[in-house]
């Protein structure tokens, strides 16, 4: 049927396309113009060439935020994918009652990240917060979660991991469940080692889904803003500011719009590269 209808379908798709074009492409084009302009008091006052882009290279604060963003991406993507995969394997067993628990595990995904940051302030509170008390029972001293740069980084990663592990978990579980039982039955005849089955059967069959998870997680981690904003306000000092955080501060607190737009384009370039890799691999899924 789809093949027969070549005409009159436009009315269905045009409203949505028009809407998204208006509110994403137009702002992006405008923001590109801003990134090439000199901006004073929120007004474009002249052409600045590439100077806003070149400014990034000499700005140590930019490099600091970029480094923190990369650390967050690396830790969060690795940890969420690894823990998510482990949990998915456990939940893939056919046992009664697991389904209900599976639903509970997806709850963090729908919790507002900014709320989670404030929740983190309670959990990581240094004087008698629940986490530090637990660590005291385990024989550790008071951990300066929010006042020491390294610990603050870890705290943000932990909250991010708490929120996004279910994402990897639920998608990888769907991937595992789509692998048919016969393949395993055949494999078990050949080898008795669970590890060998996992390494040579499960992992290769799961790899497209694993790739999807890793790429989507990377994009989301690069976009991080809410949790550092609410948990540490980017501090102590500026130790935990992400790229988005710095763009927000420069553009909408200091109104250095040109420079902020240039950095926004830098971030856009990163996520678009990930996007291109994604499309290259998964072209056939969207025919």
């Amino acid at each position: 049927m789809r093949r027969r209808l070549r005409e009159k379908g436009n009315a269905f798709v045009i409203p949505a396309i028009f809407w998204v074009l208006t509110f994403t492409i137009f702002p992006l084009v405008y923001s590109f113009r801003v990134s090439l302009s000199k901006v004073l008091y929120g007004k474009l006052v002249g052409f600045a060439g590439a100077s806003n882009y070149l400014r990034m290279f000499g700005d140590y604060r930019f490099w600091g935020t970029l480094r923190f963003t990369l650390v967050l991406v690396l830790i969060s993507v690795c940890a969420t994918t690894a823990i998510g995969l482990g949990l998915a394997i456990v939940f893939n067993r056919k046992m009664k009652g697991l389904r209900a628990f599976r639903s509970i595990l997806t709850m963090p995904l729908f919790t507002a990240p900014v709320a989670l940051g404030y929740l983190g302030v309670m959990m990581f509170y240094e004087e008698n917060g629940p986490i530090n008390v637990l660590l005291k029972y385990l024989g550790m001293g008071k951990v300066p979660w929010l006042s020491h740069p390294l610990w603050a980084t870890l705290a943000i990663c932990l909250v991010d991991i708490w929120q996004w592990t279910p994402f990897a978990f639920i998608i990888l579980l769907a991937g595992l469940q789509s692998i048919s039982d016969e393949i395993y039955e055949a494999a078990v005849i050949d080898t008795s080692s669970g590890w060998a089955v996992f390494r040579h059967i499960t992992l290769p069959l799961l790899s497209p889904v694993l790739g999807t998870v890793i790429m989507l997680r990377m994009v989301d981690a690069f976009k991080a803003f809410d949790i550092p904003f609410s948990l540490t306000s980017g501090g102590p000092g500026t130790a935990t500011r992400t790229l988005t955080f710095y763009i927000y501060t420069q553009g909408l607190r200091n109104f250095d719009l040109g420079y902020a737009s240039a950095m926004a384009y830098f971030l856009l370039a990163i996520t678009m590269i990930i996007g291109l890799l994604f499309f290259r691999r998964y072209r056939e899924l969207y025919e």
């Binding site: 923001s31 989507l216 994009v219 976009k223 553009g251 909408l252 719009l257 384009y265 994604f278």
Partner: peptide
Amino acid sequence: MAFWFLSQRFLPPAATVIPFFLL
């Protein structure tokens, strides 16, 4: 078209927040 819609998933909000504010 499907690709184009999907590509929005890769668009960082930080890239549109400034022009949106001005708009």
